[in-house]
Simulated assay, not measured.
Amino acid sequence: MALFDKDDRLVLWNRQYAEFYAARRETLAAGTPFESILRVGLARLQYPEAIGREDEWLAERLARHALPRYSHEQHLPDDRWI
């Protein structure tokens, strides 16, 4: 679980969220914009489906994130799904 404020900045997160995104741990700080967290993940190839289409993937992911309701499954590089 992660909670973002009205400006889409990270406010708080739980241990499980930190474990899922351990490779980006330095981005897990209060005030970090959601987009920045995604960009670090892209740079570290944490989104297999984004490889080769990073800008398009980022735009799609940010659009889904902005929806008031949505369901999202994410494939992690170690073949886990969340």
Rank of each mutant, 00 (worst) to 15 (best):
L10K: 08
T32I: 05
F20Y: 11
N14S: 10
Q74L: 11
A59T: 13
I51G: 08
W57L: 01
D79G: 05
S36M: 03
L12Q: 13
Q74K: 10
Y17S: 10
L76F: 14
G31K: 06
Y21S: 11
A59S: 13
V11W: 03
L67F: 00
G41P: 08
E56F: 02
A30D: 03
I82A: 12
K6R: 15
A23D: 14
Y47H: 12
R53D: 14
E26W: 01
G52H: 09
A23V: 11
P68C: 04
D5S: 05
A63I: 02
T27Q: 14
D78L: 03
G41E: 08
G52A: 08
R64F: 03
M1L: 09
F4T: 03
R64W: 00
S36W: 00
R44W: 00
R53S: 12
Q74N: 04
S36L: 10
W13E: 04
Q16V: 08
A50Q: 05
A59L: 07
L38P: 01
A2Q: 07
P68W: 05
Q16T: 11
L58I: 04
L67V: 00
S36G: 15
E19P: 00
L45H: 14
T32N: 07
A18Y: 04
P48N: 12
M1A: 14
Y47Q: 07
I82L: 15
A22E: 15
R25H: 11
Q46L: 13
H72S: 10
D79K: 04
I51S: 08
W13S: 02
L58N: 09
W81C: 04
L67Y: 01
P33Q: 11
A43K: 15
P77N: 05
P33C: 05
D78K: 05
V11R: 11
R39D: 09
A18K: 14
N14I: 02
W13N: 07
D78I: 01
P77T: 05
L58V: 04
Y21G: 02
A22G: 06
Y17V: 02
Y21F: 14
E35V: 03
R15E: 15
A30W: 00
Q74Y: 02
A22N: 08
W13F: 15
A30S: 12
W57T: 05
R15D: 15
G52T: 08
A29C: 06
W57D: 09
A30V: 08
S36F: 00
H65L: 00
R15P: 00
G41D: 07
D55T: 07
R80E: 12
E60T: 07
E56R: 10
R25L: 10
S71A: 12
R24Q: 13
E19C: 01
I51L: 13
T32L: 07
D8E: 14
R69T: 10
L28I: 03
Y70G: 04
R61A: 14
F20L: 14
E19G: 03
F34R: 14
R15I: 01
T32K: 06
Y17I: 02
A30I: 02
T32F: 02
L62E: 12
S36P: 00
V11I: 13
Y47D: 09
G52R: 10
I82W: 02
D7S: 13
E56C: 03
T27Y: 05
R53Q: 15
S71T: 12
D7Y: 02
G52S: 08
W81I: 12
R39N: 09
F34S: 09
Y70F: 12
G52Q: 11
H72C: 09
D55A: 14
D55Q: 14
